[in-house]
């Protein structure tokens, strides 16, 4: 039996068709732009200048993918930039899987005097946007001789109170107490209960946080630009490559090879966790 559409229903259907078309259009642009970059990364510079749209006319040139490794910025070659990026990733992963979980667990599961007030106070602090903090951070790091050092980056990255902690707090609060109570009865201490019972239950959410943090750090250009000038990361190096290409106006295919190489690890890492991110209900708990 076919239901007859009301005028409102027809408008709604047209609206959905328009939105769907827009979605398809945006998707094509996102994918298309990278296909274009990929194809052009196999061209020589003169070939690209004459033929930016089609397939390589002279030959598929893989040389850009070798030449890109000769690129240097502030005495760092691509491998050193990769090393710098991996250190930054390690720092951020350690911070992601430790401090917000510790704070989230205490606020989510422990009862202590002043907890509610402290939590409310934290919400207020998080609401206040403080702009221009980088200047104070730079001054602070310079005073402690931590400017341009990884220890300085660790201190700046190790904040626990943020949206990540709020989601973890709500996750821990919603978990049942039965296992923990049984463990307490068996003489387990607080640390055992935390590490053996509750921490593992946060791992699915944490794995999403870790992957998104790896992707964010891999793509982050600002932190190295402001706080680590002599330890450029891949993203900062790529930006410098763009500046060089802009000035010389010629070697865009080399830069395209850099873009593809930079994106490849992110896509691989993301493919492992994509399903979890898309199907997660926890992310939407951010309120």
């Amino acid at each position: 039996m076919e239901t007859k559409l009301t005028p409102g229903g027809i408008v709604w259907k047209i609206f959905k068709i328009i939105i769907y078309s827009l979605m398809v259009f945006f998707s094509i642009t996102f994918v298309g732009i990278f296909v274009w970059v990929l194809i052009n990364s196999f061209k020589t510079a003169p070939d690209f200048m004459q033929n930016a749209l089609g397939l390589p006319e002279i030959k598929w040139d893989y040389q850009n993918y070798f030449d890109i490794f000769k690129f240097e910025y502030k005495n760092n070659n691509l491998f050193q930039m990769l090393g710098n990026t991996l250190i930054m990733i390690a720092i951020n992963v350690i911070c992601t899987i430790s401090f917000p979980v510790m704070a989230g667990y205490v606020f989510g599961r422990m009862e202590f005097k002043g907890r509610a007030k402290f939590e409310a106070f934290l919400y207020v602090l998080m609401t206040i946007p403080v702009i221009g903090g980088a200047s104070a951070q730079l001054k602070f790091l310079s005073a402690l001789h931590l400017y341009d050092s990884y220890l300085g980056i660790f201190i700046l990255s190790s904040g626990a109170f943020g949206s990540g902690m709020l989601i973890l707090t709500s996750l821990f609060r919603g978990l049942p107490s039965a296992y923990a109570e049984a463990a307490y009865m068996d003489g387990a201490g607080e640390f055992t209960v935390f590490f053996k019972i509750y921490y593992p239950q946060a791992i699915p959410l944490l794995s999403i946080n870790v992957i998104t943090s790896i992707i964010a750090v891999w793509n982050d250009y600002m932190t190295a630009y402001i706080f680590l000038p002599t330890h450029p990361t891949i993203a900062l190096g790529l930006q410098q490559l763009q500046r060089t290409a802009d000035v010389h106006g010629s070697d865009y295919p080399l830069m395209f090879a850099g873009i593809i190489l930079t994106m490849l690890p992110v896509f691989i890492v993301f493919s492992f966790i994509a399903k979890n991110i898309f199907n997660s209900k926890d992310i939407g708990a951010l309120k």
Binding site: F26, V31, I215, M263, V266, F267
Partner: peptide, 17 residues
């Protein structure tokens, strides 16, 4: 997947492209 590309891509790369 396609709509999520800008999230996993560096702003540097997006601007370049």
């Amino acid at each position: 997947y396609a709509l999520y590309i800008p999230v996993i891509t560096s702003a540097v790369v997006l601007v370049l492209a």
